[in-house]
Design a protein around this nucleic acid. Structure first.
Lengths: 117, 117
DNA sequence: TTGAAATATTCACTTGAGAGAATATTCTCA
DNA sequence: TGAGAATATTCTCTCAAGTGAATATTTCAA
């Protein structure tokens, strides 16, 4: 059981992963949108999404050609608590704010955007 | 600046370091007491204390033969927030509770215990 | 000044994981 | 079925960092 929170903190010590979590806190997203917002190469984004999923921080659903990633509907208290903590202290940083601005400009009518939140 | 919180999370993803922080949250401690409570080899404890210090998570003061480590008097909001988060979700785990019990049994009249908290 | 206690550092080894480039897989639709 | 889009994986390289064992350093006290 000790491994669980170690695992959570490992997920939080990479900037790319933090940026991803910041985005997914807003809405479920497909890989290409995450990629667009972050401006990072596709394999890099995909690998970090895999990493987060492998450690139980996010979930994924295949939607036709796209894979939609999202925060779990019921995140455990540890993940939930840490996300709130991030919200308060970390996600205020400009990197994350800039990401959110770019996220707003994304075409949400694109085919890959899931109907249900 | 992004490096700062990455650094904090890196400090939190090792069990030994978490155990140390849990102890230092109670009181400043010398290396030998930390070592006694954790039951880990001295070089391992010393190295993780160095790691935490190097990353600004803790401070140290030399007191005669001993080095006293403690949380900073004024931890930044990030560290402070995370310590509270740890308190709520992580430090409840039995590993940490057992550590606290062992800490209580430590001879606080030993020479290495600093006068001022 | 020499020994012993407390702490710190070094060494050799191993592993996890990040990066970029290339390639593989999956899925849809013409 | 075959092309193309979206995503995933593999490969190679590099580096941070964990471990145990050994050793060095610092400090006090006799």
């Amino acid at each position: 059981m000790e491994e669980e929170f170690i695992s959570v903190y490992k997920c939080l010590c990479d900037l790319t992963r933090l940026r991803i979590l910041n985005l997914l806190k807003q809405a479920p997203l497909c890989v290409c949108h995450v990629q667009d917002v972050l401006g990072e190469p596709q394999p890099k984004v995909s690998k970090q999404l895999s990493y987060l999923k492998r450690h139980g921080m996010i979930e994924s659903v295949r939607n036709a050609n796209w894979t939609i990633y999202r925060l779990p509907n019921d995140p455990g208290p540890l993940l939930d608590g840490n996300l709130k903590c991030l919200q308060d202290f970390v996600f205020q940083e400009s990197v994350f704010q800039e990401d959110l601005k770019r996220l707003d400009r994304i075409d949400t009518s694109a085919a890959c955007v899931p109907e249900d939140a």
